[in-house]
Design a protein around this nucleic acid. Structure first.
Lengths: 209, 209
DNA sequence: GCGTGTGAACCTCTTCACAGCG
DNA sequence: CGCTGTGAAGAGGTTCACACGC
């Protein structure tokens, strides 16, 4: 079982493929082709085949890919077959939106706990979850085991939240706060950059074509 | 004024630089170096210099870059010096979160209108904005001129929302809904893929290193 | 000495065209 | 005949090392 490093670009595409496959599966489709996957992801079919073939021979020449089999293979590559739990830090609008949307995706992630530092928030129920005080982070994360923490806290609260989840043993963090942060050793931190997406769209609007 | 096409990768970095520069500016700093920008963006200083120098000579050898000047130049390249307005479709938790956070960034975007299809929502006030019915899209977008539409609607409502904003003349859309959509001619559609970010983090957690 | 600007080497990723198999 | 798997060619982006100017 020799795992070669997979580029982030590739992982992103695999994630997209898996979404498409889950959708096809839910529609009862049992076979998928590189062409249809490509159309759904707006890339070329050759790119899809290259991605997939670099991990093994998942397809049947002449017919295509088995939806269930390919989905299982991709989930195995990504490591999301049995996804880690998710905890949300910050029970404001963004935290609530993430819980309500089921993490805006058809993937298997589930929100296991919500934390907030505002005493007035503690104890409230959101989507079946009781809002916990941030002081409970260590205890609850120990109970939950491996989790991804999503930071959806107020302006300027990012670093403190990051430090706390890291101290509680969390090694993967997704932040909606864009303040620059000092990343604790051993922690993988990523950002959801809405403002950057807006910049990209603005550039598209304003550039000649 | 010959504009060469700028890759998305580069635009994304420029956007990040501009965030750092705005922060430096707000702190009263007047000079910035490629080294500090690089550290803030976790890339190499050579990459920063290459990015910037490909658009002109913005720096002073030996000292660095003038914060105000560089920021203005980057905003000009991105086209965000006078940013387009933003309208939000969907006044649920996500829509409210985006309004409350000021679009989670220090950039100059401002939310100009909020729409919802739920009659019970119409007329409510959110962050100083009255929730408008989606039927008012055409009229209000005509008043606002060039805008970016952010789709934060419920499960399965993406395509309908996209079609409506496109029909109202909007040419740039950012969607939190991940359903595959048929993109109207002339529209640039991008996605905020929280579930993909989670997949990337999961892969990081689960891969040997 | 310090920090920018840049050509050249380097490397990664994408595209193409086609062989191969059902 | 249809669709996958893949070597080869090509494009694009990154790193390196150093010259230049303050």
């Amino acid at each position: 079982m020799t795992r070669k490093p997979v580029s982030e670009r590739t992982i992103r595409r695999l994630s997209h493929y898996s979404r498409c496959l889950r959708l096809a599966k839910s529609r009862g489709e049992s076979v998928m082709t590189s062409n249809r996957l490509a159309a759904a992801c707006t890339i070329s079919s050759a790119a899809v085949r290259k991605d997939l073939s670099s991990f093994g021979e998942f397809g049947r020449k002449g017919s295509g890919y088995d939806v269930d089999g390919l989905l299982a293979s991709i989930e195995d590559i990504l490591g999301v077959a049995d996804p880690p739990g998710v905890v949300i830090v910050g029970a404001g609008n963004m935290g609530r939106a993430l819980i309500a949307s089921g993490l805006s995706g058809s993937s298997g992630y589930r929100v296991r706990a919500v934390f907030d530092s505002d005493p007035a928030m503690i104890g409230r129920e959101i989507g079946g979850l009781r809002v916990e005080p941030v002081d409970a982070l260590s205890r609850i994360l120990r109970e939950l085991g491996e989790v991804i923490a999503v930071l959806a806290v107020g302006r300027g609260g990012g670093q403190a939240a990051l430090d706390r989840v890291a101290a509680a043993g969390c090694r993967a963090v997704l932040s909606f706060n864009l303040e620059p942060m000092k990343v604790p050793e051993g922690v993988c931190l990523r950002f959801v950059e809405v403002s950057t997406e807006l910049d990209i769209l603005t550039h598209a609007l304003r550039s000649p074509r």
